[in-house]
């Protein structure tokens, strides 16, 4: 099968204990790219998951081919920013997708991202749950309220001009992603947010596409007091820094 475009898309999937989710998200990614006749590779960056995620990743590589599934394991949990750097070091695509491996982000939106990117030749295209056509499934009122307050605070303090700051389903031009990761200092929850703020500062153009977000089907998504405090600390640090 000959790809119709000359572009190649690398998907970075950082994993930690995603033994259940990884095969299914990989299968859905392969399907989305093949159905749309796009050239792609999926780079799995596993941080030595004790549940044997890497072993499953090897089986996926055998099933779909080493040109499609690339394994870039690391010795331990070393953070999201360095995972992306580690992943793009050997990425052969000129565009890079970043998404969660837990199936909360659905690969069916990949053609929308690519279409949007081409429309405005955007440096970054970010998925938004908060635009018409987007949405979230599996959140109770408390979780929704927390998300809205978090987004309102970030929006007021940082004025990034992006409707979904904490979302992490995004398409980047590869050199743009490299430059942005180098400029980003924070870790954890604030990382994705800072990436968008830095993108604005560096005058990169950003497009938005609506996406749906289905909260983890397997495993648990946690949001406790510690996470909220961590978020607020990171937000204030970032607001003071820009």
């Amino acid at each position: 099968m000959a790809p119709k475009g000359q572009h190649k898309y690398s998907v970075l999937l950082p994993t930690y204990n995603e033994r259940e989710n990884l095969p299914i998200i990989t299968w859905m990614l392969v399907k989305a790219f093949k159905d749309n006749e796009l050239d792609f590779e999926i780079i799995i960056i596993d941080d030595a998951s004790p549940d044997g995620t890497l072993e499953i990743a090897k089986q996926l590589q055998a099933a779909f081919g080493a040109d499609r599934i690339v394994l870039r394991p690391r010795a331990g949990k070393l953070g999201l920013g360095t995972a992306y750097i580690h992943g793009i070091e050997h990425a052969t695509g000129d565009y890079v997708f970043i998404m969660d491996a837990d199936m909360s982000h659905h690969p069916k939106f990949i053609p929308d991202f690519i279409k949007k990117q081409k429309e405005g030749n955007f440096d970054v295209v970010t998925g938004t749950r908060y635009a018409l056509g987007g949405g979230v499934h599996g959140w109770d009122l408390r979780r929704k309220l927390t998300s809205r307050v978090a987004n309102f605070l970030a929006d007021t303090l940082l004025t990034p001009g992006v409707s979904d700051l904490t979302g992490s389903f995004r398409l980047y031009k590869k050199p743009v992603l490299e430059a942005m990761i180098r400029a980003t200092k924070s870790k954890g929850y604030v990382f994705q947010m800072e990436m968008m703020v830095r993108a604005r500062q560096m005058n990169f153009t950003i497009g938005e596409v609506p996406i749906t977000f289905v909260d983890r089907v397997f495993g648990e998504s946690k949001l406790g007091a510690a996470e909220i405090v961590g978020y607020l600390k990171g937000l204030i640090t970032l607001a003071m820094d820009i």
Partner: peptide, 26 residues
Amino acid sequence: ALVTFGDCPEAYMSLLKEINEAKTDL
């Protein structure tokens, strides 16, 4: 923003179907 928060139950239903399809093929 809270009142206009978008839900997407259909995305969840179709995901469950796809998960089964994926498991069989995998």
